[in-house]
Computed example of a mutant assay.
Amino acid sequence: MGAQRLLITGAAGGVGQLMRGRLRRPGRVLRLLDLAPQEPAAEGEDVEIVTGSVTDPEVMARACADVDALIHLGGLSRENSWEAMLATNIHGTQVVLDAARQAGITRVLLASSNHAVGFRRVDEAGPGGLPADSTPRPDSYYGVSKAAIEALGSLYHSRFGMDVLALRIGSCFETPLPLGPRGLVTWLSPDDCARLFEACLSAPSPGYRLVWGVSDNTRRVCSLAEARALGYEPKDNAEAYADLLRGAPEPPPEESVHVGGGFCTNPLGAPNPL
């Protein structure tokens, strides 16, 4: 049996760069796709660099050739115009899924977001946290695009039998500090992100699943039960950084009551802060 080939779209983005080293494994080739320039393979690094857009069917057909599994991180990661979200995030994801289908790829991980349910109230969370399969309540055009890719993943599972896991990622940075106090709720550490991806890649016959992508934060409002059922065992907790955020301004009340935070008050289509 040859090496596993794992395709990662959006590999030059923030999460993609954090995963490049963390998803390296003996017997695994990482095929990294992005429009942006990427570092060439280092000595001993089993990496294939592909330059192109997720919206280009020909690029995606070539990128998916001989691939065993796909992690789709490509797309716009913050609020933008409706036209941009439709073209890149929604249409681009359909192009990716169809290329994967035609190439015979049976395991796809889709990077969704907490903003797909951003207008869910924090106080909706029960003792175990807000369920991972809570119905969408998007807080922005960006959130709508993430709800749409979840729906596309469900469609491609139901129509074609692909295992599709949509991960509602909170915020994946080296530390939670860039997000201020909100980061203590939503942080997904890079190491836990890799652990979550590995669990989703190896879980036997998961079908279509929605799972939260957060670390085991003391202040989290999201359920980890669904991800743990796949084998995810987070080891990090944003609370370790709480002292460094002491004295930082708290978000205004109209933002703190909703899962999506400031995305819920930012003007639609306008650039938003982290």
Rank of each mutant, 00 (worst) to 15 (best):
S223T: 06
R24I: 00
K146D: 08
L245A: 13
L110H: 12
V15R: 14
E174P: 14
P131I: 10
I90L: 06
V257Y: 00
L244P: 04
L155I: 13
P204Y: 10
A84G: 03
L224T: 06
N80C: 07
G261H: 14
D46M: 04
L30W: 01
D66E: 10
L97T: 12
L23M: 08
S81F: 11
S215F: 02
C64N: 05
E39H: 07
V59S: 08
T265G: 04
P252Y: 06
S81C: 05
G126H: 04
H91P: 00
R219C: 01
R120C: 03
P206R: 08
L70G: 01
D191H: 12
D236S: 06
I149S: 11
H91T: 10
L188P: 03
L201E: 03
R159F: 01
A238Q: 06
A100L: 09
L274A: 12
P127V: 09
S154Y: 09
V257E: 15
E226M: 14
N237R: 09
G92R: 10
V211L: 11
V185R: 10
V54R: 07
G180L: 11
L18S: 11
Q94A: 09
G27V: 05
E58S: 12
A238N: 07
E255S: 11
R121P: 00
N114P: 00
R195V: 06
I105M: 05
L244K: 13
V95G: 09
E198F: 02
G27S: 04
A132G: 10
R25E: 13
Q4H: 02
V95K: 07
A116C: 09
V15G: 03
L210F: 02
R5N: 00
A111Y: 03
L7K: 04
L86M: 12
S112A: 12
H258A: 05
R219N: 12
G183Q: 14
Y141V: 01
V50P: 11
Q38A: 02
I149W: 00
V59L: 10
F119C: 01
D192G: 09
E45K: 05
C222T: 03
F197N: 00
T51N: 14
A125K: 02
T135R: 08
G27R: 02
E43A: 14
L224D: 03
G247C: 15
G262A: 08
N266T: 15
G74Y: 03
P26Q: 09
L184G: 09
P138D: 05
R101F: 01
S81R: 14
V214L: 07
E39A: 15
F160N: 08
A3E: 11
E58V: 15
E83I: 00
C264D: 00
R120N: 00
L86Y: 05
D163R: 06
T93I: 01
Q94T: 01
D56Y: 06
A63Y: 04
D68F: 00
Y141K: 13
A69N: 02
E45C: 04
S77N: 11
K235E: 10
T135D: 12
D98W: 07
V117K: 00
A103D: 12
S145P: 09
V117L: 01
D191Q: 15
